[in-house]
Simulated assay, not measured.
Amino acid sequence: MQVQGETKPYDSINVTPMLDLAYVLLVVFILMTTASVQGLTVSMPKPSNTPSTEKHELKVVQVAPGGQLMVNGVPVTLAQLEQELVQAKQRDPKMSVAIKGDARAQYAQVVAVIDLCNKLEVAMGLVTSRIGT
């Protein structure tokens, strides 16, 4: 007679969960090794050894935290900025603009300045600072 609640001891170990884990680890390993091998090869241009002696006009446009615009430290509106950039481009077609947007500035104002530079076909760059400085 068998007593209820007694169970027969297992004579084999269920290895299915262990195999599932092994397969998952194998797939992750394969994906990670192929991802690290593949990539884009980019051929970077080499700078010329001769320094440029040309000096072109540079306008520094600052976007303050409140959204105010300043050109070389002088407050201006977006319309005044456009006039100033048009005049500067007439004087020097290779002039450029450096845009300094404050970290707390309204992003829309920075984009408006970038759009204006693109519209006037003026060379521009964004001024950043290193992290921690």
Rank of each mutant, 00 (worst) to 15 (best):
I114D: 05
L126N: 06
M95L: 09
M44N: 08
A103P: 02
G125K: 14
M95Y: 03
E121H: 15
R91H: 13
M44Q: 09
M124H: 15
K55R: 12
L126F: 11
V122T: 13
K59D: 07
V42W: 12
N118Q: 15
D92G: 08
K119F: 03
E57I: 10
L85S: 03
T50D: 04
V113I: 09
A88P: 01
V111Q: 13
Y107C: 00
Q68C: 00
L85R: 01
L40A: 06
V71W: 08
V76L: 03
V127Q: 12
L69R: 07
Q109S: 10
A123G: 08
E84K: 13
E54C: 00
S48A: 14
K46C: 01
G66W: 05
T77V: 06
K46E: 13
L126K: 09
M44V: 14
L40R: 06
K119V: 04
K46A: 11
V63I: 13
P65K: 08
Q68I: 08
S48W: 11
D115Q: 14
N72D: 15
L69M: 09
G73A: 07
L126R: 10
P93K: 05
Q109F: 06
Q68W: 08
V122Q: 03
P65T: 07
C117Y: 05
V86M: 08
H56R: 09
R91K: 15
T53Q: 13
R104K: 14
E54V: 13
D92W: 09
H56E: 00
I99F: 06
L126Y: 10
G125R: 15
I99E: 00
A98M: 09
L120Y: 05
K100C: 03
E57P: 00
V97W: 03
G101V: 14
A64K: 13
L81Y: 10
A123I: 15
H56A: 02
A103L: 12
G67E: 04
E82S: 05
H56T: 11
K55C: 00
V86W: 05
S48L: 12
S96V: 02
S48D: 11
T53N: 11
L85E: 06
M70H: 14
V127W: 10
K55W: 02
K55D: 02
I114C: 00
L78H: 12
S52N: 15
S43M: 05
C117V: 12
G73M: 06
G101Y: 04
G66F: 10
V113W: 11
V111W: 09
M124P: 00
L78R: 10
V61T: 01
P45K: 13
S52V: 13
P75N: 11
T53F: 07
C117K: 03
Q109I: 12
Q80G: 12
P75H: 07
V42R: 12
K59N: 09
N49W: 04
Q90L: 06
I114F: 06
V111P: 00
N49I: 04
